[in-house]
């Protein structure tokens, strides 16, 4: 426990010293929230809708930090620590290298949580945001999306040959998901042909779960996305554990 807390404290400092996660996981979601808030104000999502456009988008914006940490931060830090032989150094100490992976997962989960709380606060304070559905369902959905996206990141970081490969794959996953899954550009304003294409992205499915929970829509609406996210989690975790390269 002493090891974990000391390491967590140090790795958080290192991560904040790197500043990029602070920008992409904490600042960027707020910027997107405020921009959407200014454009759409507190208008209803569509004529006669009983929820606002921003309420419809809240779940999506809450995944920006998950996406940044999961498919950008995690793979990069894992492949970096492997190529610097930091993971190897742990092999000649009493603790296993898995502890530093656990610390990293915790850090990105914390970024996602801080982002969620700031978004909730800003949206409630300035844009009349109300969670229409059950907060518990939202949290469960948010956890599922996080675990699922993080498992993708663990897989990419774990099996990439080197930091360069990890960086390329991370970019290929991060930017399309950030722009086209609905996290920044709202899914609802996309033409329906485009919606069909972006449905392929795992994050698009995750966002559907969170949207449904925020708006209090029937759980049946989200059943398919939930199954997809669980399957992704299982597949990626198995691949990550089975093929993880420590050196």
């Amino acid at each position: 426990m002493k090891t974990f807390s000391t390491m967590l404290k140090t790795e958080i400092k290192l991560s904040l010293r790197g500043i990029d996660m602070f920008i992409f996981a904490i600042c960027m979601p707020i910027v997107v929230l405020v921009v959407l808030g200014i454009i759409y104000g507190t208008n209803p999502a569509f004529i006669d809708a009983d929820y606002t456009f921003l309420e419809q988008s809240f779940g999506a914006i809450a995944t920006i930090a998950i996406c940044a940490g999961g498919v950008m931060g995690l793979p990069l830090v894992i492949s970096d620590y492997r190529s610097k032989h930091i993971l190897k150094r742990f092999k000649v100490t009493p603790v296993k290298p898995t502890i530093i992976l656990l610390v990293q997962v915790t850090i990105y989960a914390l970024y996602s949580l801080v982002s969620l709380i700031t978004l909730f606060t800003v949206a409630t304070a300035f844009f009349n945001f109300r969670m229409q559905g059950s907060i518990y369902q939202f949290i469960l959905g948010w956890l599922l999306v996080m675990i699922s996206i993080f498992s993708i990141g663990m897989m990419v970081g774990g099996i990439s040959k080197n930091s360069k490969v990890a960086g390329i794959i991370a970019s290929l996953l991060y930017f399309p998901m950030l722009i086209f899954s609905g996290a920044t550009l709202p899914y609802e304003v996309m033409p329906s042909a485009m919606q069909k294409i972006v449905d392929i992205l795992p994050l698009t499915q995750g966002i559907k779960i969170l949207k449904s929970a925020t708006l209090g829509l029937p759980v049946a609406n989200a059943i398919l996305p939930i199954i997809i996210m669980i399957v992704i989690t299982i597949i990626c975790s198995i691949i990550a554990i089975k093929f993880f390269k420590w050196e």
């Binding site: 290192l14 010293r17 790197g18 970096d80 620590y81 610097k84 930091i86 190897k88």
Partner: peptide
């Protein structure tokens, strides 16, 4: 070890 293994900004 021969090579240094530490985090970038530590």
């Amino acid at each position: 070890f021969q090579e240094a293994n530490y985090q970038e900004n530590i």
